[in-house]
Design a protein around this nucleic acid. Structure first.
Lengths: 199, 199, 199, 199
DNA sequence: TATGAATGAGAGTTCATTCAT
DNA sequence: AATGAATGAACTCTCATTCAT
């Protein structure tokens, strides 16, 4: 029978978990899932090697929780920026602009995202894909469907075209060097897409 | 030492090497580089585990040689099909069509390609990228530059646009299930690009 | 500092210690000493994992204290029932009857007893053996010696025969399933022994 | 395609396996299953720690194979000595005599047997019990049933009495010090049983 | 007194690589 | 050239124990 739930205790747990997830992100980004060393993660987060197992059941579940974390943050980042503008063409521009910015600002998370989506582990791939469904819908419904409705875009099939655009985003966005500099300017990519979509 | 005896030796070596590379392709495709088991590769190729070390110095060099093998075959496959047609727009269509066909016909090689290009190992990534430079040039010079010259395509910057199109190819082409069925029809992708490029 | 306050403290300590010992018995019975998890014991007793270290110095001393606890309870149970009858043959019957009953009623304690006596840890084995010396003496002096004196039993050597009978008790008594059902009826075992001992 | 099965290779495997099993027996006897260190086993057998995994899939399967090994050797040892005499009473004497001798000569195997039969691991216990069924049958059919038939033994129920005698054997036989010296002389135990069984 | 976050030694297991045959 | 027994570094994970609160 615990005396009473200590608020501080919860704060500590949440802080530690956060530090561990951050270190995990960097380790997974640098080494990949299989190459990542669980002990290093804990050490790099400033803890002893065993500590990480007080927070995650296994390396695998750590990765799965990280996937959710990344997808949620990414989606929140993008939708907040995309939905505040009205014009669908502009939305697409913002989508790429903000999307590329997210990669630059969250380099390690981006690398985990890209390697996982293309990696051999099907469970991770599936989870990542599922976690990104909201973003597919954002593109398909809040950008393409609206634009088609307004006659700004051609009459393309919104769903598969959303897939195509997501694909282009994930493919081009992943072309970053270790300092976060993109190989493609977002404007070039969004222009390319807008050109392809214009009515 | 009769000459033909040596010839047989070479044939056998070459045949064995080929079998090992094929088994390696499947193992790397299924498990990724780090997850791949060298002993399994040798066993699956029909040899004892030690045998692979008579042909490759290490797991790493095996992978590096495989990268070259894949890129060469891929490039040969595409250029043979692309260059026999004349019209640049048609060439782009054939590029995607043949490109997707190659993935379906060489599924394991394709998976190795995609995971390596997005994987965490920078040496592999660099090697793969270098090995694919000819293909970038094929798109930039034999398709885009020609089309711009003929006034069929807009005045885009051929090099970076080639990068964009390669990116789209590698991104969409990698969306295959385990039976080799693509998620995007090549026509949809090439149409999208042509639309974006049209003068 | 009022006295009754201290009294409460002691009661609470004693109660907690008892709960911990009980949980320990079940854990050790199920998993064996090495397989037992100290944290689980504390948790199953209704406390946090650190609590157990306020009562026992280590896993090892916990086990040692448990051994004494079991032996004392067991001995008390048996001697109370054996010594109230007079006839030595009857005493032997009661010894087995009560002995088997104790196992059924104290299943977890019984399992700890049996696994410890046969386990690899010599310190535990020695302690357990020493703690059971009174029971050897009960059999040797209060049953066998008396019976030989009265001419009811053959002229066997009381000490080693007591060892033999204790051995038979511990061997047959340990044959219980998880619901506490014995494989041998106590009567069969005591009859066997009486037959062997009859003058 | 292996050239041809090398006789030497098989010999080496068999020899190594044997050395590993012997070292395992000693380790399990000294430390118990959970306390046993797989690396130590391999080292004590004269190999590197990884070697044992070329012969056994896991610590658990190593133990399971050892159980079978022990039971078979034990049964062979006993039946060879018991069945060459005719008189059932004599057979029982020989059973205990040879049984105790086996323990002395195979001390480590004996300890594994006794700790396993009384240990907390139900899979091991079950396997061991099953592996010893032939010995139960030896006692029940080749000793008790024959003796009852010939009117030498009382009309006891052969099966459960065989269980009782096996129990007495396993209980008393396990009382050995580290030099293999028994606490009970086999004659005392067999006499006790014969007395109990006499018609 | 009770708590539970943190520790780190140590376990079982994997597998790339070596090398005698 | 091919084999497969042997190696040992390195990994994931467990858990008895400590200690600040």
């Amino acid at each position: 029978m615990p005396r009473h739930k200590n608020k501080d205790r919860e704060d500590i747990r949440s802080e530690t978990r956060s530090l561990l997830l951050q270190a995990a992100t960097e380790e997974f980004a640098r080494e990949g899932y299989l190459g990542a060393n669980i002990n290093s993660i804990s050490k790099n987060a400033g803890f002893a090697k065993g500590t990480i197992y007080n927070y995650f059941d296994s390396k695998r579940t750590l990765m799965l929780e990280l996937i959710a974390e990344i997808a949620n943050g990414h989606m929140e980042f993008l939708s907040q920026r995309v939905l505040v503008v009205d014009d669908p063409a502009h939305r697409l521009e913002v989508f790429f602009e903000a999307g590329f910015a997210w990669v630059t600002e969250n380099l390690a998370q981006g690398l985990v995202l890209f390697t996982t989506l293309n990696g051999p582990d099907t469970e991770f791939k599936t989870r990542m894909f599922e976690a990104y469904l909201p973003m597919f819908q954002l593109v398909g419904q809040e950008i393409l469907a609206v634009g088609i409705d307004q006659g700004i875009f051609r009459q393309v099939e919104p769903e598969s075209t959303a897939g195509l655009i997501m694909n282009i985003y994930l493919g081009t966005g992943s072309q970053v060097n270790e300092r976060g500099e993109q190989w493609f300017p977002p404007k070039q990519v969004s222009d390319f897409c807008l050109q392809a979509l214009q009515a």
